[in-house]
């Protein structure tokens, strides 16, 4: 795989579910591995929504593959979506969907039907002001589909031809493996605009300066993100860290007292974190969330056994795990929150 390349996946027209029979093949490379024998995810029936997705791609042993795929929302007008279905072949580390905003070094790929393979797709600063649509980390064989029907009257709202970025990260290395090929698909199901009473809002928040070194036990990082202008309801949440992560919690947080609630989200499984989708948590004006990541690294662990100093580290930190996307060498502490009614597009750093 080239360090950075941009290719055209397929045109919008053939990716749209109105021509659903073509979808399974439109995004494939000639040199890609054969798709799995079973259908990963059928697209919505004609007129009920649309499917976006990656082609099938190889994930070589010892490698990580992270690609950014760009698609326009296939609608000439405003579109509401009240159900999202995501499916991934086993081995996925994450599957994100973002709304494209300020285009930085992903510019060459930021148009309908293109891919940025690796390279700039690893650099999170490139999408620092892109709003989250959804995140999935669920790809366990036999349990690799998330089907989320939003609460009654709640829907994502997309602008006509709004540009989205699908980011897929597969790992076939030490801490995660990919038994076959990689592939990620997402179905967006259209809602009746007349029945939509509230727009879904999302929050992406990440703690960027973390370091876990061999021998650290329950080293914990807690940060806050304030996003409530008025009363709102949190309906979903998931967290993301890597294999040193032992406990991820998310609580509601009050911006006057600084008090955090008992966690409404807890994950102790870094490679199969829960995705809470049935929450009903009230948050008042000037409220937000407090999220916390605890990490432990055995004394014998080493992030960079070849001796490289990690980003943000210093000589002597070769074995420490610092902020970054690579599963075996880096750590994350990211939270994804879903709520209504939407206040604004929110990213907290």
């Amino acid at each position: 795989m080239s360090n950075r390349s941009v290719r055209t996946v397929c045109s919008l027209a053939v990716c749209f579910a109105l021509v659903a029979p073509l979808v399974a093949s439109c995004a494939r490379d000639d040199d890609a591995p054969a798709p799995p024998a079973t259908e990963l995810l059928a697209p919505p029936p004609s007129g009920q929504g649309f499917q976006l997705g990656t082609p099938t791609f190889a994930v070589a042993p010892g490698s990580e593959v992270q690609n950014c795929y760009f698609f326009e929302v296939p609608s000439d007008g405003e579109l509401f979506v009240d159900r999202v279905t995501l499916a991934q072949e086993p081995g996925s580390h994450h599957f994100n969907v973002f709304r494209v905003n300020t285009v930085k070094n992903l510019g060459v790929g930021a148009k309908d039907g293109t891919i940025v393979e690796g390279g700039e797709c690893w650099k999170s600063g490139n999408w620092s002001d892109w709003a989250l649509v959804i995140n999935s980390q669920q790809s366990e064989a036999g349990n690799n589909v998330i089907d989320w029907k939003l609460p009654e009257g709640v829907a994502h709202k997309f602008k006509a031809h709004e540009l989205l970025m699908l980011q897929s990260h597969y790992v076939n290395a030490t801490t995660q493996t990919t038994p076959g090929a990689g592939r990620a698909l997402v179905n967006f199901w259209k809602a009746d605009p007349a029945k939509v009473t509230a727009e879904l809002g999302t929050v992406f928040t990440t703690n960027q300066n973390i370091k876990i070194c061999p021998g650290d036990v329950d080293k914990t990082f807690t940060a806050t993100c304030k996003f409530a202008r008025s009363d709102l309801t949190i309906v979903g949440a998931n967290g993301h860290f890597h294999s040193r992560g032992t406990k991820f919690t998310i609580s509601t947080w009050d911006a006057v007292s600084g008090a955090a609630s008992e966690p409404f989200y807890t994950s102790t499984q870094w490679d199969d974190p829960p995705f809470v989708r049935d929450a009903h948590i009230a948050l008042g004006p000037n409220g937000g969330v407090s999220y916390s990541c605890a990490f432990t690294a055995p004394p014998t662990a080493c992030a960079n056994p070849d001796g490289g100093v990690p980003d943000g580290g210093k000589p002597g930190d070769e074995c420490c795990y610092t902020f970054g996307p690579h599963v075996d060498q880096n750590e994350h502490c990211n939270a994804f929150i879903y709520y209504y009614p939407k206040q604004a597009d929110i990213n907290c750093f």
């Binding site: 070194c213 061999p214 021998g215 650290d216 036990v217 329950d218 080293k219 432990t296 004394p299 014998t300 662990a301 080493c302 210093k314 000589p315 002597g316 930190d317 070769e318 074995c319």
Partner: peptide
């Protein structure tokens, strides 16, 4: 701080001897 001083303070090759780490070490 010079690399040599840091290497003396924080060495990966023998993490059990590292000072200044959280937890048991």
């Amino acid at each position: 701080v010079s690399a040599s001083v840091l290497a003396a303070l924080v060495g990966c090759s023998s993490p059990e001897a590292v000072e200044g780490r959280v937890g048991a070490t």
